[in-house]
Design a protein around this nucleic acid. Structure first.
Length: 424
RNA sequence: GGUGAGGUGGCCGAGCGGCUGAAGGCGCUCCCCUGCUAAGGGAGUAUACCCUUAUCCGGUAUCGAGGGUUCGAAUCCCUCCCUCACCGCCA
């Protein structure tokens, strides 16, 4: 959520910046509601003040044993007027909140203009895509040939976009999780955290998935209104919801969870293989920082994700998302895209964002600043990395002519010293 | 799932229809005293919003959440959520 005061004071500025991401701010409606709200709030509060005052005098009169009937008569119609004003105020406030909750974050100055992912701007590249002297195969062919990936059984058990993995492929998948966790904990200074995989509506509202993006989520058919998490961002960031945090900052968490996405609206996209599944593993980095430190923190956080790619020797590039492609809650996002030989292109493997105080305001996540006053934190997160996509990119980039997969050096200690996956 | 006890400020804890935004304690901040340390004395110490040139003053709301009763609710009633204890079931 944006700061209502900012919208009130500089609506033109805000509208201009939001236009960069293709969002049109309805200033007229906003002003109208704001004016009504102000009027109704003053009226309501005046009536409440009146009621409080007369109630108090009734109490005092009664204590002295005076006749209170005249006083009671005097306030007889107050209740009705108050209910009226309150009802109207609630209605206006609800409308206002709905509108505010639907406004996306303001893009940072550095975010380039653009409509779609085609307008994202490349910032850097690392590593050189390998030259193959044989026909490259994609991870589906390779994985199935090694009896490590089984999409048919996944479809039988559940449906499309689910996979079963076995043996050394499954082990490499698990090794990646351990490797990423350990690296972020031991070398990048993150604290490990384990959270629920099922969350309530308040949590999803806090990080911005609700109310606008319900269709991307798996909702459980229970009366509590629970959802499967689409990313660890939701439970981890919400650990500080409704808190005034008084520990050390920055607070950096790394968390491995499965992620569940309904992928509604992505029919026909990436239907083959493990690129886009309903269930996938991710190691997520989440940071809570002081406002003045969030810009630097985004550079550091994306660097931590890049370290994983580099140590696995996977070629990648870093892009900054343009206004049209950036997520609802983010002020600035870097995507890391790994090289996929079978597609002859770079594909997203990590997304690192600075949300500034947008999520914190929704969540009321605060800390005490140097003056001891509660102030909104800044939140950031990024994949470090998406495990399924890392696995498939290793399979493709490390494939050998005979269909075996070389195991990256960094992973060998996690796989009992294994140097290649041969499928036998 | 059953039974019982609870959910009050940064923390502990009193209040059980009006003078309670909330006693008392702890913690924290400032001041005083004390030749170190320890101890002692005093003052202050919630959040959000509205009004306002103003972090002055004033107003409103908030005692788990939402409803209700009442002129008036932290206090009474209803529903829900959560915590703890015991029982049952169970990875």
């Amino acid at each position: 959520m944006l700061d209502p005061k900012l919208i009130r004071n500089e609506p033109e500025q805000v509208a201009k910046r939001l236009a960069l991401r293709g969002y049109q701010l309805d200033i007229n409606t906003l002003n109208n509601l704001e004016e009504q709200r102000k009027m109704l709030q003053v009226e309501t509060e005046n009536l409440q003040a009146e009621r409080n005052k007369s109630s108090k005098s009734i109490g005092q009169a009664k204590a002295k044993g005076e006749d209170i009937q005249p006083l009671l008569d005097a306030v007889a119609d107050l209740g009705g007027k108050l209910d009226d004003a309150k009802g109207q105020l609630d209605k206006v406030q609800d409308q206002m909140n709905d509108l505010l909750a639907g406004i996306p974050n303001i893009p940072d100055e550095s975010v380039p203009a653009g409509k779609s992912e085609d307008d994202n701007v490349e910032i850097s590249r690392w590593g050189n895509p390998r030259k193959f002297d044989f026909d490259v195969r994609d991870h589906v062919d390779l994985g199935e040939a090694l009896n490590g990936m089984d999409f048919e059984t996944g479809a039988k058990i559940t449906g499309s976009r689910f996979v079963v993995m076995r043996d050394q492929i499954a082990r490499m998948h698990r090794a990646l999780i351990q490797y990423m966790l350990n690296t972020h904990i031991d070398e990048h200074g993150y604290r490990e955290i384990y959270t629920p995989y099922i969350v309530n509506r308040d949590s999803l509202r806090g990080t911005g998935q609700l109310p606008k993006f319900e269709e991307d989520l798996f909702r459980l058919d229970v009366e509590q209104g629970y959802y499967l998490i689409p990313t660890a961002e939701v439970p981890v960031t919400n650990t500080l919801r409704d808190e005034i945090y008084d520990g050390e900052l920055p607070l950096k968490y790394v968390c491995h969870t499965p992620c569940f996405r309904s992928e509604a609206g992505s029919y026909g996209r990436d239907v083959r293989g493990m690129i886009r599944q309903h269930q996938f593993e991710k190691v997520e980095l989440v940071q809570f920082v002081k406002p003045e430190e969030s810009d630097d923190a985004l550079e550091a956080l994306s660097g931590h994700a890049q370290n994983i790619l580099q140590s696995l020797e996977l070629p990648y590039r870093k892009v900054i998302l343009c206004g049209g492609d950036i997520g609802f809650s983010a002020a600035k996002t870097y995507d890391l895209e790994v090289w996929l030989p079978s597609q002859n292109t770079y594909r997203e493997i990590s997304s690192c964002s600075n949300f500034r105080d947008f999520q914190a305001r929704r969540m009321k996540a605060r800390y005490r600043n140097s003056e001891g006053k509660p102030e909104l934190l800044h939140t950031l997160n990024g994949s470090g990395l998406a495990v399924g996509r890392t696995l498939l990119s290793i399979i493709e980039n490390y494939q050998q002519e005979d269909g075996s997969i070389e195991v990256p050096e960094a992973l060998r200690p996690y796989m009992g010293g294994l140097e290649a996956i041969t499928g036998s």
